[in-house]
Nucleic acid binder design. Sequence first.
DNA 1: GGAGCGATGACACGCCGTGTCGTCACCGAG
DNA 2: CTCGGTGACGACACGGCGTGTCATCGCTCC
Lengths: 188, 188
Amino acid sequence: MGRWTPDARGRLQQAALELFTEQGFAATTVPQITGRAGLTTRTFFRHFADKREVFFEGDAVPQLARRLLQQAPADVEPLTLLRHGLRQVGTERFDGQREQVRRRRQVILAEPALRERDAQKRDELVDVIRPGLIARGVDPLAAALLAQVTVVVLHVALEQWLAQPVEQAFGDVSDGCFERLSSTLAPA
Amino acid sequence: MGRWTPDARGRLQQAALELFTEQGFAATTVPQITGRAGLTTRTFFRHFADKREVFFEGDAVPQLARRLLQQAPADVEPLTLLRHGLRQVGTERFDGQREQVRRRRQVILAEPALRERDAQKRDELVDVIRPGLIARGVDPLAAALLAQVTVVVLHVALEQWLAQPVEQAFGDVSDGCFERLSSTLAPA
DNA sequence: GGAGCGATGACACGCCGTGTCGTCACCGAG
DNA sequence: CTCGGTGACGACACGGCGTGTCATCGCTCC
């Protein structure tokens, strides 16, 4: 409990999210955000590297991926581990929150600057998964391909999952994507 | 032949590339670029949407992808088409220019802002390939997965190709990546 | 109770990107 | 040949982003 009202970072995130949905990302300025949060502009940039980061901060997927890769038993097949990992991500961050995820997705898609940052975040996830696989004994080329493909499936499956008429478990959608991809790549 | 010395856009690209390699992307300002090109700052932004675009402009890969997808005979298997497409990209843009490609790659990797834009460019390529596949009769889910995977292979194969001790044909590396991916994803 | 610490405020500043208007060679119509 | 349109660029102003720097002051530890 400091000299100031607590959770400055959380207040900034909250204010930013509200303003982004109210008036769009491009139309809201950092002073507007800090004004609503009761802070100064300079303080915003002490918590977030730039205006886009406040939207993506707290995205726990890379942390979860790191944890799963480290803690899984060594005898688990990499592909199995990755499939279960996506299912885990689904239950922790998607299942049961489809409308919330959809709204967030729409904000991103509407703003080129946020799409770009989203693509970078996917790359960062690849850069977590790949060394994790290598540490588990996967050779570098396969690790690079598997890490990239896992993030691709996460991305495509999320799109599929959001488009379903009725919500199903994300893990089922991502597993379906894995299988579909495997069969599509198999030589005819 | 106008009132001004011709090829303003080309002069800007040239000056920008020189300055980026001389002193780095972040350290060069747009006024520096336009100064060297003999133009004003405002003119820079008439030719390029932002400072990063001058580095990626003229990247003909999406155009090539569009052309290949439209012109290939309708009976070519999608996967075959994509593999040949990557080989084509390799011969047109990579093979025989490895040092040049490597230098460009290093500039991108050294600058987070350029990595981010590079990721966005890969997404844009996906957004060219996917509808092209759908137009060829591939169903939407497979098209999404194949488009993403093709760009992944392009990316991973480029990394592989740059790391080889002696240069080989890019198409051989990308084909190897495709096969490796297919076998890695196949159920044990 | 005094020293160090850490989060924030306050202020200045450079650069990015845009809106707007003026200038002037080129081009086509008459 | 002239005259208005067009299109690229210059000139200027400006808001917003992101950073460097120093001051402030409650908290903690000794």
